[in-house]
Design a protein around this nucleic acid. Structure first.
Lengths: 139, 139
DNA sequence: GTCCTTGCAAAGCTTTTGCATCGCT
DNA sequence: AGCGATGCAAAAGCTTTGCAAGGAC
């Protein structure tokens, strides 16, 4: 029984082939810039691997994964939503406006500040999304 | 000749009735929390004011306004995009995950911190988008 | 065997586009 | 008058849903 198998069970989901395959695609790259998949990205990837999985299933499964906290859904500026597998460690994104390169970073002070800002307004911070648009400093 | 009229001309857009009316709706509330309109919000508002303006026109006009830097388009987590009139002053957004209510805030320390984070990586901050997802604290 | 899951197709929603008409300058 | 702007309806995305068949436990 694989690790993914267990993770699915833990989320109350049956370990079906579509779900396992989708999970594999989401986890398939170590390259940060490529770690964001739209439903169709996953669909095409599976088709090209001769896995016969319907697009509707992918949408349903991604929704379940998101509810289970296994993936995060981003909207960015495009029309399509993209999904990213959740790692243990929280991070934010920095995008180079010239090259499109996506970098990740984590700053504890920033996290703390966000909690404080929410608290000051009478709210608790559930989550946040932040993207810094940056440009390389000429040297 | 109204102020809006001039602003439209400056953007290279003819001062037509639909554009003026849409601008008026966007500028119609002093309440920051309610300053986000979807295309349909604007459409309904105009219809209820007996202005006969097509939804397609609203989409076209909003796209033009965005290109001219007069409004900012946000996606938040919903399916609909919302538009906000650009004020001189920068602010970020906080969304109540239970009610969908959007609030605005500005925190100088946060802004400074973002610049520092970018700088530390050898970049200058061009822009940023940040949304805090929050929940009301039970009292 | 039971109940959850899947695939397909159809429907739903938001947004965009083609085209003839209209209106600002 | 000229050319951009509008309205309507149709089309185009992306995503969700109904339903019958299939699969996990």
């Amino acid at each position: 029984m694989s690790k993914q198998n267990e993770e699915l069970k833990k989320a109350g989901l049956k370990a079906t082939l579509p779900r396992i395959k989708i999970m594999e695609v989401l986890a398939s790259t170590a390259i940060q810039e490529e770690a964001h998949f739209s439903a169709e990205d996953i669909y095409k990837e599976l088709i090209s691997n001769d896995e016969d999985i319907g697009l509707a299933t992918i949408y349903r499964v991604l929704t379940q994964f998101e509810a289970a906290g296994m993936v995060t859904k981003h909207h960015f500026e495009n029309s399509k939503a993209v999904y990213e597998i959740n790692s243990d460690e929280h991070h934010d994104h920095m995008v180079d406006v010239d090259t499109g390169k996506v970098m990740e970073f984590h700053d504890e002070e920033l996290e703390k500040l966000q909690h404080e800002i929410a608290k000051k307004k009478g709210y608790e911070l559930v989550d946040h999304s932040m993207i810094l648009h940056v440009r390389k400093i000429e040297s």
